[in-house]
Write a protein that binds this DNA or RNA. Sequence first.
DNA 1: TAACGTTACGAAAGCGTTTTCTTAAAAGGT
DNA 2: ACCTTTTAAGAAAACGCTTTCGTAACGTTA
Lengths: 336, 336
Amino acid sequence: MKPTIKDVAIHANVSISTVSRIINNQPGYSEATKEKVEKVIKEMGFHPNGLARGLIHKKTHTIGVLLPNIISSFSSKLLNGIEESAHENHFSTIVCNTGPLGNRTLEYLKVLGEKKVDGIILTSSPLKEEYYKEIKALDIPLILLSSMSYRYSVPYVKVDDKQAAYHATRYLIQNGHTKIAMISGSQDDELAGMPRYEGFIKALGDHGLSVNENIIVYGDFGFQSGRTSMEQLLPFRDEFTAIFVASDDMAMGAISVASEHSLKVPDDFSVIGYDNTHIAEMAIPPLTTVAQPLREMGQVAIAKLIEMINNQETIASAIMAHEIIERKTVKKIKST
Amino acid sequence: MKPTIKDVAIHANVSISTVSRIINNQPGYSEATKEKVEKVIKEMGFHPNGLARGLIHKKTHTIGVLLPNIISSFSSKLLNGIEESAHENHFSTIVCNTGPLGNRTLEYLKVLGEKKVDGIILTSSPLKEEYYKEIKALDIPLILLSSMSYRYSVPYVKVDDKQAAYHATRYLIQNGHTKIAMISGSQDDELAGMPRYEGFIKALGDHGLSVNENIIVYGDFGFQSGRTSMEQLLPFRDEFTAIFVASDDMAMGAISVASEHSLKVPDDFSVIGYDNTHIAEMAIPPLTTVAQPLREMGQVAIAKLIEMINNQETIASAIMAHEIIERKTVKKIKST
DNA sequence: TAACGTTACGAAAGCGTTTTCTTAAAAGGT
DNA sequence: ACCTTTTAAGAAAACGCTTTCGTAACGTTA
C-alpha cells in the first residue's frame, strides 16, 4: 500500500498538518522539521493523493475534450494543440470520441461531470440543446472549438468559414479560373457546411460569375465522400477548371479518383482544399489549401478555458486568422 | 453549488446511507423510499461525486495513455482503438503526449500517479529504467503497446516486426524484385528500427540476394525523413527496383521526392510501406504496405490492462498478426 | 517582570462518498 | 402470545488530504 500523509507524519514524528504545510510550502515550521520531513517523504516515496486534494479544493486540474472523431488529421492537430497547452498549464486532458454524429456526447458529459473535470472543450460539433442543458446543470465552464452556437452564448474559437471560403474562391478566380466547381460539406451542417458554401457563392457573385448547380456537390468532409463527390463531378468535366473542396480529406479523395481517370491535378483542373492538415503537405502534388491554425486554436481554447475556470465569468470568443497556403494544385491560367 | 448526497438525504427525509444504497442499488430499503429518493435525485439533479467515490474505492476508472506524438496517423489510429475500447468498459482515457523522445514521460507519470489512474499504456517507446522504476513505485498496472522490453517482464502487445519486415521483403522478391533498397528507421531504435532492418536482411539472405549497403538509408519514421532518405537514395537510382520503407509516412515522403524528380511509382520503382495508416489509402497511387492492426491492438491492450487491474496478476503478452495489403505501388516484374 | 507578539506545531473538522455496525420494527414460527 | 429471524433504516467511521483554530514556548518591549 502506498504511504499516506499520515504514514509520513508518524515516521517523521510530527503531525499531519505539519507534513501538509511542508508539501504545499506554506509557512509554519522550522527549517529543521522541514528537512526531517522531506527526508522521510523521499524515503517512503510519498506522493499526495490527487483525489483527496481534489475533493477538498473542488478542482481536478483535468479538462474533458469532446471530439467527433480522433482519427482525422483535423482532430489530431487540434488535440495536439490542446493537450500540449493543457499540460503546460498543469492540466490533464481526457479525450472523448463522441462518434461522427456525436451520439455518445451525452454519455461522455455524464462521466465528465462525475469525474469533476474543471472545464470542457466541445470541438467541431453543434451545441445541441440537450448538451447545453446538461453542461449547464453540471455547471462546468465550456468552450466551443471549431464550432459555435447561435442560440446559446457560449464562447468559441474558430475561423470565419464564410470568409475563408470566400478567399479560397477568390484565389481561384485571381488565378484566372471562371468555371469553378465545389465539393461542399453537408448542406445541413450549419457550422462548416453552409458557411463555406455561402462564402463560395458570394465570391462567385462578387466577381460577376454565375452559379452552376451541376458542379456543386455535397460530401461529409471525409476521404470517401471526396471520392464519390468527384465521381459525381466527372460527367461535367468540361464545365469547370478548378474545384474548391471544403476539406483536405475530401480533396485527397477527389484527386485520387481523378488520377484513376488519368486526370492530372493541376494540369487538367486545379484544386484548393481546406484545413491544411498534414496530409496536405504529403499529397502529390502538395495541396494548395486554406489553413486553419489548428494547433494554435487548441492553445487559445485552453487559454480561454483556464481563464474561465479561474475567474468564474464568461469570456470573449476568438476568430482566428485563416491563410491561403500556396502549394502545387492550383494552376494560373489565362482568363478566357 | 451542486447538490450532494447529503442534500438529497435531507430533502428526502432519509439518511445518507439509504441514499447511497439506492444509487448503488444495494439491498436495504423499501420500494416506497426508493421511489421517493429517486424522485428527489431527479429533481435536484444530483450526480455522485467521482472523487469521493474514488477515494474510498481506490479506483478512478481512468487510464493514462502515453504517446510519443498525437498527430501521426499511427498514433491516432492506436489511440482510437484504445479510447473506444476503454469507453466501452467504462474507463476514461487521459492522453499524454510525451514528445518524440519521450522527454516528458516522467512528468506525466508523476501526474498520472497523483491522479491515481488505474492503469497505464505506454506506446511506441522503449521502457527506460527510470520509467519502469517510477511506475513500479506507483504500483500501477502497465502494458506496453507497439513496444516491448527485454529487460523487464512487462506484458506487451505488438506485431512481430522482424517477421513482418521479412514478409514485406519477401513479397517484393516474389514479385520479381532482386535489387531492393530500404529506408529504415533509426539504427539505435531497438523496437521498430532494428527488427525491421533485420527482417529485411534475413529475407534477402534467405533468398540468395546480397546486401547492398549503398541503398540502405536511415530515417526517423516521419514524412520529412522519408524525403531526405529518398534524396540519399537517388544517386543509386539504378541499383534498385523496389524499396521497403519502414513506415507509411516515410514512404509518402519518398514517393513525393521521387515525383519531384519525375520518377513514377510503381513504374520507375516499387514501394512497400509499413503500418497501413489511413494515408496509405489516400496516397496516389494507393500504397501497398504491411498492416499493423492498430485499432485492434489498442483494444487488446485495453482488455489486457483491465484484466490486470481486476485480478492483480500479470498477464501474457500478445503478438498481433500483420498482413500485406496489396495496393498499387508494387509492380510485378520479370526476374532478371 | 508583566503584557504582548511571534513562531512552531498539533487537534479536529470537513470535503462527498461507502460501508460496517447497530437498532427498531415487522414478519414468521410454534 | 412469545421468541426468533428478517427487513428497513440510521449513526458513525473511514478514505487521504487541507485548513481553521488553539496553544505552548519563546522572544520583545516598556
